[in-house]
Amino acid sequence: MMIGLIDTGCANLASVRFALERAGLDYRVIATPAEMAGCDRFILPGVGAAGPAMARLREAGWDAALKADRRPLLGICLGMQMLFERSAEGDVECLGLLPGTIEKLPAPEDGVWPQMGWNALEDLDPDEPLLAGVEAGDHVYFVHGFYAPVGPVTAATCVYGRPVSALVRQDHVAGCQFHPERSAVVGARILANFATSSV
């Protein structure tokens, strides 16, 4: 089982790489779609802003390649947000692999913007393979100022002033708003589930 870790050139891959290594999972850092051959599934990480990140993805041809592919794909944080149709962050068109748009996350009345810290997973879809062995109330680590409102692809939520999509899925395309690579044993479980699940 080989995971292709997509390097857009503007995301920091170190913590995801180390998490895969701790989990004993094989991966290969891939910079262009030509390197997809030989990979069984893909992770699209992301840190930074949607505009520059989408521009880099398009430049390298990732938008067309990912649209045409059927292997399991996991977007993390900004990588998850780029799976949707559009993002209000810079008002950019995204990959369109998932229905819906990314909106700015309003600060809760008694909280700050962005959401930064450990929050509890809620409303878990019992059929979601990434959440096998994960329970409502388990905490994962979030850092984000934009969010996917709860919709048809939401497979788990957290509450930050309002319900926020924490995990999304449609067919072979999934995404985590949180950082599994920095979410202790719960995150390690989710990454292991991604490597072993049937979708």
Binding site: S15, F18, E21, R22, Y141, R182, S183, A184, A188
Partner: peptide, 11 residues
């Protein structure tokens, strides 16, 4: 920093 990052699974 890198040695710590390899080991830690929290921020």
């Amino acid at each position: 920093v890198s040695a710590v990052a390899r080991e830690l699974d929290i921020p």
